[in-house]
């Protein structure tokens, strides 16, 4: 039998996205809350707590809380999309067999995967928008001299977080497509997600470290997502485009691989 690369269909992907949207519409109040609180905890603990011990002058002329706030937006999108594409996708794939039911309709396996990418992006953007609003308000009320979000370019952040969500969904789905047991996600979160969270320039500027630290940071997706978020929050430069291009190209190259593997898991 000939095998060739499968591409998703827009209509089928939309139907899968629409299923998720319908369910989100029912449960959004309970679903959203933890995703909203977690970044605020980091902001309080690191920004205010640790920030109090960091010398006046902060980083690159910013206070510490100003420095970390935009990066937390990117991290929040990463966590939202990673949970969606790992545990949630695994349950739909193996436990509830939701995908098995869908692929007997005109919606194909490849549409299922692409629809889930789009949904992870949407979820990341929705959470990100809420968190962005909170950061902006906190800045205006409590820190008027050092606004957390200081540029109108920040209005593009939700759109960018959609892209970040899709990127981390592609990565998470790739891992999901390769594993048979749900407990293996401990490896993914401990060895991939958490190190990125800690070492992608959210909490300290990695570029000031000697080689190979900046080089390692450069190959991690979150590093570029953090750069773009920080630039959009404070006013972008030409360098922002380079980081944006990195995210787009990385996502595009990787996106088709989980689709092929997941198709083989659903269609024997």
């Amino acid at each position: 039998m000939k095998t060739y690369v499968r591409f998703p269909n827009a209509r089928g992907s939309f139907r899968v996205w629409q299923r998720e949207f319908t369910i989100f519409g029912k449960y959004w109040k309970t679903l959203t809350f933890p995703n909203f609180i977690e970044p605020l905890l980091y902001l309080a603990a690191m920004g205010l707590g640790l920030g109090a011990f960091i010398q006046r002058g902060g980083i690159n002329g910013q206070s510490y809380i100003q420095y970390i706030a935009p990066g937390l937006l990117a991290a929040n999108a990463m966590f939202a999309a990673s949970f969606e594409s790992t545990f949630n996708t695994f349950v739909k794939l193996k436990i509830d067999q939701i995908f098995d039911a869908i692929v007997t309709t005109p919606v194909n396996a490849e549409d299922v995967v692409a629809g889930e990418y789009l949904w992870a992006g949407t979820r990341a953007a929705v959470y990100g928008t809420g968190f962005l609003a909170v950061l902006t308000i906190i800045g205006f009320i409590f820190l008027p001299n050092q606004l957390l979000i200081s540029s109108w370019w920040a209005l593009l952040i939700p759109l960018f977080l959609f892209l970040v969500g899709v990127m981390f969904s592609v990565m998470g789905t790739l891992f999901t497509s390769l594993i048979r047991r749900i407990d293996l996600y401990a490896y993914y979160f401990t060895l991939v997600v958490t190190p990125m969270f800690l070492f992608s320039g959210i909490f300290f500027p990695v570029t000031r470290f000697p080689a190979p630290v900046p080089q390692i940071a450069w190959i991690t997706p979150l590093y570029h997502a953090v750069n773009v978020c920080r630039d959009l929050a404070n006013g972008p430069t030409l360098g922002t485009l380079a980081d944006l291009a990195w995210v787009v190209i990385f996502t595009a190259i990787l996106a088709l691989i989980p689709i092929q593997i997941m198709r083989r898991r659903l269609i024997s």
Binding site: I23, Y27, D96, I98, D100, A101, T104
Partner: peptide, 11 residues
């Protein structure tokens, strides 16, 4: 109609 129930429990 599949052998195993794969209804959507979230709905």
């Amino acid at each position: 109609v599949p052998q195993e129930n794969n209804l959507d429990d979230d709905l």
